[in-house]
């Protein structure tokens, strides 16, 4: 019996933080397996499978191009309007999907939570991975779109992962919060779709954020997705989009705060999940 003392576990009310991060590391493969399960199931159950993650942003892009570009005739800063919309659609879809997936994840895995121990943090964070896969598939469409419009990006395209990470942390920060609240108050599952729908209109997805009057720009940037979407446009569309730096910095700070508080709230309530779920 090797050295059983190696894994001494102490169970005490209100404690366990020290072991928590070690456990998280030990259960890292579960993270991978849960993400893998979600991806497998997602593409097994749907009829059109992968096509789903292509059709959704593509149709939304067409509608937005017609409504905002053609009917409302909003400015596009000299970029083809479909690319302007699609470059914003990518991070927005990723954020929206991650948020809904992660906030529902605990309820969806309620049975596991009640019967097995593992660091609960794995559940909402692994559920984000599915949306990441969708993101990469949708990204391929952007490439096709750019070839079609003969639009060549410059070096800034390599900064995309940075903005993607920002979107991921924002989604996860909110997601942790909402998933924990969802365990306690089930009506949060009706709030999430509302947030997502509402957010689509208050974020600069269908239009460029330059249409927002200068004096409101800082206030507008309180929505962390403004920084992410502007960042994506800056990286993909290149010099033609002007950049509002205070907004991005504000996004970074806000995302950090949301994530830290989301994580704290999650960690504090996590211990009671099995009792109330």
């Amino acid at each position: 019996m090797g050295e059983p003392g190696k894994y001494e576990i102490i169970i005490e009310p209100g404690k366990g933080a020290k072991q928590y991060w070690r456990d998280l590391w030990q259960y890292r493969e579960l993270f991978y397996f849960l993400a893998w399960r979600d991806i497998l199931v997602r593409y097994k159950q749907t009829v059109i499978g992968v096509a789903w993650s292509v059709i959704r942003p593509l149709l939304t892009m067409i509608v937005f191009t017609i409504v905002f570009g053609k009917l409302a005739k909003l400015p596009s800063d000299g970029v083809p309007y479909p690319i302007l919309v699609y470059a914003a659609m990518l991070p927005w879809q990723f954020f929206a999907n991650s948020l809904s997936e992660s906030s529902n994840s605990l309820i969806a895995n309620a049975n596991m939570l009640a019967k097995v121990y593992f660091p609960r943090l794995i559940v909402p964070s692994s559920s984000v991975i599915v949306s990441l896969v969708d993101f990469f598939i949708s990204f391929a469409i952007l490439v096709i779109l750019m070839v079609w419009y003969r639009f060549v990006p410059d070096w800034r395209i390599i900064t995309i992962p940075l903005f993607l990470l920002l979107a991921l942390f924002a989604a996860l920060g909110f997601g942790l919060w909402l998933s924990a609240l969802n365990v306690k108050y089930r009506d949060f599952r009706y709030i999430v779709p509302f947030i997502v729908q509402f957010g689509l209109y208050i974020s600069p997805v269908g239009f460029s954020s330059t249409v927002v009057p200068e004096q409101w720009r800082f206030l507008y940037s309180l929505n962390p997705m403004v920084g992410v979407i502007d960042g994506f446009r800056w990286a993909i569309l290149g010099s033609s989009a002007q950049f509002y730096w205070p907004g991005l910095i504000l996004s970074f700070i806000l995302t950090f705060i949301i994530f830290v508080f989301g994580l704290r709230y999650f960690r504090n309530t996590e211990r009671t999940f099995a009792d109330i779920i």
Partner: peptide, 22 residues
Amino acid sequence: KILSRITEPTEGIVRLKGRVAS
């Protein structure tokens, strides 16, 4: 459930030595 760490005790302490599976 307490020994397997699914739920935490309201009071008291448990010491476990070794890998636990439930």
